[in-house]
């Protein structure tokens, strides 16, 4: 028997199902809305519905978009021969924030994770291979997460992107800028050493 009215309990349950929100936070948000002006709840509801109804996946890169093609895909100032492969739409936002990348994207929709039932067929890899030729891609930059699933996905992409003349690169992993070497965990520091770059002389 719940201590709340049914509709309140439904609201709390709905919030608690969202990622990053536990039962306590769900309860707090629900009571905040009930206490606030009705306007606030109406705005939230319509924002959720509008975002859900107006957005879809970009037909080319599978980023979230309000049009058939997303704003990055239709931007003529973008390098059309440079393609950055990421796992999720939120990773596009992360790479965009760097202002370092002027190419286009391809969103896989996840990483290979057989424990979750995700294999290469469940990712948009066929669609990626179909883009490389017609778009005259020069370089594919693989930006999957530096964990086991992301690394396995990168390895898989490297094997299937076996196209003559195509450069396949992978994002480097290393130390956070502004950090101290002594505070870096040994795995990250080890990776940074393995992926060190030459600043003088010739590589052996």
């Amino acid at each position: 028997m719940s201590a709340y009215a049914d509709s309140v309990q439904d609201l709390i349950d709905a919030f608690a199902r969202l990622p990053g929100i536990g039962p306590k936070s769900a309860q707090r948000i629900a009571f905040h809305l009930l206490k606030a002006e009705p306007e606030e709840s109406r705005n939230l509801a319509s924002a959720v519905t509008a975002a859900r109804e107006r957005t879809r996946f970009c037909e080319r890169c599978f980023n979230i978009s309000e049009e058939t093609l997303c704003s990055i895909c239709v931007d003529p100032k973008r390098d059309s021969d440079l393609l950055c492969v990421v796992e999720e739409p939120r990773d596009v936002v992360a790479v965009e924030r760097t202002l370092e990348f002027r190419g286009r994207y391809h969103v896989l929709g996840g990483a290979i994770d057989h424990l979750q039932g995700v294999g290469p067929e469940q990712l948009r890899i066929k669609e990626l291979l179909a883009r490389v030729g017609p778009e005259e891609t020069r370089e594919v930059v693989i930006c999957t997460n530096p964990n086991l699933e992301g690394e396995a996905t990168a390895l898989y992409l490297n094997r299937v992107l076996d196209v003559p003349g195509l450069i396949v690169s992978q994002i480097a992993s290393g130390l956070p800028v502004g950090g101290d070497l002594e505070y870096a965990d040994e795995l990250t520091l080890g990776r940074a050493l393995t992926g060190r770059r030459l600043i003088q002389g010739e590589s052996t």
């Binding site: 290979i112 294999g119 290469p120 890899i125 390895l155 898989y156 094997r159 299937v160």
Partner: peptide
């Protein structure tokens, strides 16, 4: 793609 997946 199973063969490549397994190779990975």
């Amino acid at each position: 793609p199973e063969a490549t997946t397994l190779a990975v």
